[in-house]
Design a protein around this nucleic acid. Structure first.
Lengths: 149, 149
DNA sequence: AGCAACTTAGTTGCGCACAACTTAATCGGT
DNA sequence: ACCGATTAAGTTGTGCGCAACTAAGTTGCT
């Protein structure tokens, strides 16, 4: 029966939407201790990971799948907070390079316990977390691959 | 090493955030045909499911885990679009009852193919979808149970 | 060299999410 | 019956997320 497919509880989409917001709820008070929002934290993860390989705004966007409409004001706030600096590339004035400040690098040490605190709140085992992550990653990549055609 | 835990690709949180947005990307053009956004569609799912059991704003909020700050303007837009009507309860003037119009009920038939179209775009089998949904639902409930303490 | 096509960031506008607050109605204890 | 506490919906303000657009710089073709 077609009708049953429309029931809220049966939809994977709602489960994904609800779980994503629930996890953000877990992050919020934790990240609040550091004056960060969740998307801002994701930007820092990319910058920490890159190290000396300084990304541009669009490279950050490729990593997080966010466009300049989202990133420009977000990066402006992170710059105002003193964790990073934006500067035009000398060899290509269109590009803006995003560099951590010392304060931004120092945050990495202070926040190293965050992922574990969040993982515990999910109530899943490590194996379940890995399985979940891999399934989700596969879904995301399938969708993006189809959109590129 | 603590450092490895902070790498973006290893984080379940990012996988969840990315998958949720990717799935919304799948919905957007489909729902656009009906003039709806994704959260608006979720509200309709609840209303269709309830049938004659007319929910209040806060009952909708409990089903979708959204507060009046989100729902009030959203419902106002759906009312302006003609798919539902809001009216103060006669027996408790604080409550606002949310009722489908004929147009809102008619949308259900027109949209019955939507879930299947979206499910196909994920590239997962039916069994994988069910497994994913159940894992996500478990995560969400674990988090909410902990928050209530 | 000149110029059209493209790339990169940024801006604007809209719709969520959510915290904090306001307003109005109901409940509960005395 | 009164009045403080609670409940329900709405409002305000902030920060995403994304579409559409703008401004400025670079590339490539002739």
């Amino acid at each position: 029966m077609v009708t049953d497919d429309l029931v809220l509880g049966r939809q994977v989409c709602f489960a994904l939407y609800a779980a994503s917001r629930a996890l953000t709820d877990v992050y919020r008070p934790i990240l609040d201790e550091f004056g960060l929002t969740y998307p801002q934290y994701l930007v820092l993860l990319v910058l920490w990971e890159r190290g000396d390989d300084v990304p541009t705004v669009s490279e950050l966007g490729a990593a997080l799948r966010l466009d300049s409409g989202t990133l420009s004001p977000l990066l402006k706030r992170l710059e105002a907070a003193g964790v990073l600096v934006r500067s035009r590339s000398a060899r290509d004035e269109r590009r803006v390079e995003v560099r951590l400040t010392d304060a931004g690098r120092a945050l990495r040490e202070r926040m190293c316990g965050v992922p574990l605190r969040v993982a515990r709140a999910t109530g899943l085992t490590e194996a379940e977390l890995i399985g979940l992550r891999d399934t989700l990653t596969r879904v995301t990549e399938t969708i993006h691959r189809q959109r590129e055609k």
